[in-house]
């Protein structure tokens, strides 16, 4: 058990610089208590990957990361035999019998462990982060099922490797593809949305300590107003922090029309969004 209570989760994550909402803290606590993987969904830039890093830091565990992409396969995710080394081994021992060579070249020495196998082997504490699971193909999900439900991996030549110490597993997804029901059922589900105003203010103050209290509040309010608009891509927490840093670098002490208009590009990434937001925030200018 990593944590004693939900408050304990909040406090210790906050110490590492990650301020969790009550929903995040509760779900992390349950994932630890029930020993189930955590599936995190939400818009880009709300701190899904950061959460895994923060948990690893709290647990003083090694972070093992599997970055998914289209075309990631067994040999990238699970393990691979080191063919070149096996060939060397065979050509080095010319005189031995086939049986000797066969048992030898399929041993641990010639195995290249990839993230999933790494996370399961060994006795040290680990946090396994499977990032952007939705980018991987459907076949990889099938691969994950064995790992996530029983924490074991079967290597035909070696047998089944079972985790002696279960890693804390975090899967993230941007929901670009619907993950299969089978995978979802094995996980606790957590949706990280945009934080409420008060939490976001605290996040900004924590990440950009030099920023004036009143300015931080204005920043959060403007971002809140932009999120309520119908934009192609609404600003996320990462953008809020970027904007706060920009304002700090520019030495602005209060928001006004010029500053906002000049820096809107930090918050919004599409030209039509910028025009729409400028019209809304600054009705006199257009």
């Amino acid at each position: 058990m990593l944590f004693t209570s939900v408050d304990d989760v909040s406090r210790r994550l906050a110490e590492t610089g990650y301020l969790p909402s009550p929903a995040v803290a509760t779900t992390v606590f349950l994932a630890d208590r029930l020993g189930k993987p955590l599936l995190v969904e939400g818009p880009a830039g709300v701190g899904k990957t950061e959460l895994a890093k923060a948990v690893a830091q709290v647990a003083q565990a090694r972070l093992v990361r599997l970055q998914c992409y289209e075309g990631v396969d067994e040999s990238r995710a699970l393990y691979e035999w080191n063919h070149a080394k096996q060939l060397l081994r065979i050509s080095a021992g010319r005189d031995e019998t086939w049986d000797e060579a066969r048992t030898d070249i399929f041993s641990e020495e010639f195995l290249l462990p990839r993230p999933l196998l790494t996370a399961i082997r060994g006795d040290d504490a680990k946090v396994l982060l499977i990032d952007e699971t939705d980018k991987a193909d459907v076949e990889v999900e099938g691969l994950l099922l064995e790992v996530l439900s029983d924490f074991q991996v079967t290597v035909p030549e070696l047998g089944t490797v079972t985790a002696t110490r279960r890693p804390f597993v975090v899967l993230t997804s941007n929901a670009s593809r619907e993950l299969s029901e089978a995978l979802r059922r094995r996980c606790l589900f957590l949706h990280i949305g945009f934080p409420d105003e008060e939490l976001e203010r605290r996040i900004v103050r924590l990440k950009v300590p030099g920023l004036d209290e009143a300015l931080a509040e204005s920043v959060v309010r403007v971002v809140g107003a932009l999120r309520a608009m119908d934009l192609r891509k609404v600003p996320s927490v990462a953008e809020t922090i970027d904007w706060a840093r920009t304002l700090l670098a520019l030495g602005a002490d209060t928001l006004d029309e010029t500053v906002v208009r000049d820096t809107l590009g930090v918050l919004l990434k599409h030209q039509d969004d910028i025009l729409k937001a400028a019209a809304k925030l600054d009705p006199g200018a257009l």
Partner: peptide
């Protein structure tokens, strides 16, 4: 807390 806990265990999507 109970609400979030039940949501995490029972739900599968946003």
């Amino acid at each position: 807390l109970l609400r979030e806990g039940l949501a995490a265990t029972l739900l599968h999507g946003t």
